[in-house]
Design a binder for these strands. Structure first.
Length: 643
DNA sequence: CTTAGGG
DNA sequence: CCCTAAG
């Protein structure tokens, strides 16, 4: 398994209010999209993006090389997990995944008009059965409805006769689906899928996929996944089907017979290591542990579930489940604890498919698709609109953007882009402004990737150039984290230097942009050297001469404006007073925040002295104004040299 | 444009 | 950092 697999397996996520703490996400990647009234997809607003950024935090970690192994491990186990008790549930849950999100849209946006797009976006079989069955429950008008579906699906299918039941369930779903499709006026009907019922008999008993024709395989695929596939690749189909039936990722591309959802290798005649043999409890435990690894989001229940369902709702839905209550119970518990523990999410069926896809395609794991990330906005949208069948048959590359974390250049999902400016209010402007938005990223790359170049100009000390605050870039907490994880405190020098150019671009860009700080100036932590320069500058030119100081001492730091200097100085003074004078037991007020490297007391001392000078200067201005002296005065123990 | 201050 | 009011 490769990192890219994870990223490729994107899920449709809608904007709106569903991004909150609990909005658990796939361990994979989400693509934030908003469905417009007419069914078209639109990039998320920055606000929306922001809302999920925190989740992506964990996600971002995934691709990190170190985690790959774990991830793989995880999926393997998880696959097995699905198999056992709630096989069905696993499935329906997984399948409903996309739908759920989309459905939430119904609440957020215009309900009726969305249906079509929903259908077109998602797997046919995903259509809501429950609208028919449990009209009373959650699926009223609130965004909570979605949950029931999967629950029902799982509930209504006794475990014993898994296959057949699942078939019927699927059938129902399909029917319901077609209904809803038909009901909706404009909906692009799902090609044929809804018209006929898959031939589930094909999956009955011992299935030897090798003996099936492509058509049969496709049928089997449909019976397995509840949707059609246009893929004609036998190998691919076989793998998919096998995986689907066995719920295992570990499937050989051929020579396997599926019997009772277990893989039986023709040749080896032995079952692949599935959940069999592993104590249920152990498995469960495993899952628990794993769940904690991945993300705040959780998953046994679909994201929306955990978030949208109130406690009561959850209970009621649990009741609905009936059969699989015990499992649900634990799930519920898990959910309750999810806040504290990170858990992994079951790989979605789609993920599984994607997985095999990449494998089949001989993917060695290109980390993503750099080439296609160009116009993410649009490209991405189109992709989402494409019928799923096609989506998984093609080697879709999902839009990502390159970003740098802790020195690693990785592609992160489009949605995880950091917000740079003030929230954008409308999509149009969002799109229009896209280029500039990219700037920070570029900068990041430049900063972290390239080695230091030029700018040794009047550089006094490049030694201590560590940002005073480690969370240099990106205000958002999570990126910060990512950076830390990257683990290196690069010499700020690097940072500064490279940032300069990029930032300049950015700034000019921002400034040219629509007035009112559409973009907030990229936050740059003040480095020690900068502070020193500032202090020196103040000492030399006197306080208030910001423009001068900037011109002379900060010639190389084009991103520091005189105002910045002024602000910083103000802060320094504050710090010196707070942190120094009351003889604070050496504990800085901002203590316990490891990410903040306090300004060395030595400097603060100077600041303080200068500050005192200033205040006194108020009365005896003349003394300081004669710069020549003032600097000396300042450097020489302040008040002493003073008249 | 530069400063000073408040936010 | 941003924004504004004042020189």
């Amino acid at each position: 398994m490769e990192v890219d697999t994870l990223q490729d397996a994107q899920e449709t996520k809608n904007g709106g209010n569903d991004f909150k703490e609990n909005g658990s996400l796939d361990p994979v990647v989400y693509q934030l999209v908003r469905v417009e009234g007419d069914g078209t997809l639109v990039p998320p607003t920055e606000d929306e993006v922001l809302q999920i950024e925190q989740f992506l935090d964990d996600k971002v970690d995934l691709p990190s090389i170190d985690d790959v192994g774990n991830v793989e491990d995880f999926f393997t186990n998880d696959c097995m997990l699905l198999k056992e008790p709630d096989f069905e549930e696993g499935y329906s849950e997984l399948e409903t995944n996309g739908e759920i999100h989309t459905q939430q849209f119904d609440a957020d946006l215009e309900v009726d008009r969305l249906k079509p797009s929903v259908d077109s976006l998602d797997i046919p079989s995903k259509c809501t059965v429950d609208h028919d069955h449990k009209p009373d429950k959650l699926n009223t008008e609130q965004g909570d409805n979605n949950i029931v579906h999967q629950d029902n699906a799982s509930t209504e299918t006794p475990k014993s006769t898994v296959l057949n039941d699942s078939c019927s369930a699927e059938k129902e779903k399909t029917d319901a689906c077609s209904r809803s499709v038909n009901n909706s006026s404009t909906g692009p009907s799902v090609s044929g899928v809804t018209s006929s019922v898959p031939d589930f008999s094909i999956l009955r008993g011992e299935v030897c996929l090798d003996n099936l024709t492509i058509r049969e395989l496709q049928e089997a695929f449909r019976a397995t996944f509840g949707r059609e596939t246009t893929v004609k690749d036998k190998l691919w189909l076989k793998r998919r089907i096998t995986m689907g039936l066995t719920n295992s990722c570990d499937v050989q591309s051929s020579g396997c017979v599926v019997k009772d959802y277990k893989i039986v290798c023709k040749d080896a005649k032995h079952e692949l290591p599935t959940i069999e043999g592993i104590p249920k409890a152990e498995v469960e435990a495993t899952s628990l542990v794993r769940y904690q690894v991945l993300g705040p989001g959780n998953e046994r229940d679909t994201p929306s579930c955990s978030y949208y369902r109130s406690e009561d709702q959850q209970r009621s839905s649990n009741r609905l489940k009936g059969v699989s209550t015990d499992n649900d119970e634990s799930e519920g518990t898990l959910q309750d604890e999810q806040g504290a523990a990170k858990r992994l999410r079951k790989p979605t069926k789609r993920y599984i498919e994607e997985l095999s896809d990449t494998e089949t395609l001989g993917s060695t794991g290109k980390l993503s698709s750099p080439g296609k990330m160009a116009a993410h906005g649009e490209v991405l949208l189109r992709q989402r609109v494409t019928p799923l069948q096609e989506v998984d048959s093609l080697s879709i590359t999902y839009p990502t953007r390159k970003d740098t974390f802790g020195g690693f250049s990785v592609h992160v999902p489009y949605a995880s882009r950091m917000r740079r400016g003030r929230p954008r209010r409308n999509f149009i402007s969002f799109l229009d402004d896209d280029p500039p938005v990219e700037c920070p990223e570029v900068q990041m790359a430049v900063e972290t990737m390239s080695g230091k170049d030029g700018e040794h100009v009047n550089h006094v000390n490049s030694a201590v150039e560590v940002p005073l605050m480690k969370n240099t870039e990106k205000k958002g907490g999570h990126i910060e984290t990512a950076e830390k994880k990257g683990g290196h405190i690069e010499t700020a020098d690097n940072k500064e230097i490279h940032s300069i150019e990029a930032d300049d671009i950015c700034r000019s860009d921002a400034k040219t942009k629509t007035k009112r700080g559409f973009k907030r100036k990229h936050h740059r932590a003040w480095t020690l050297s900068e502070v020193l320069k500032l202090v020196d500058g103040v000492a030399q030119f006197g306080p208030g001469k910001w423009s001068e100081i900037r011109r002379l001492s900060f010639a190389s730091y084009s991103y520091r404006t005189s105002v910045d200097l002024k602000d910083k100085w103000r802060n320094l003074i504050r710090a010196s007073q707070t942190q120094l004078s009351p003889e604070n037991d050496g504990v800085c007020p901002r203590k316990s925040n490891p990410s903040i490297i306090p300004v060395p007391p030595a400097i603060l001392l100077r600041v303080k002295e200068l500050a005192e000078l200033q205040s006194q200067a108020g009365n005896l201005a003349a003394a300081i104004k004669f710069s020549g002296q003032s600097s000396k005065v300042a450097q020489g123990r302040g008040s002493s040299g003073f008249l």
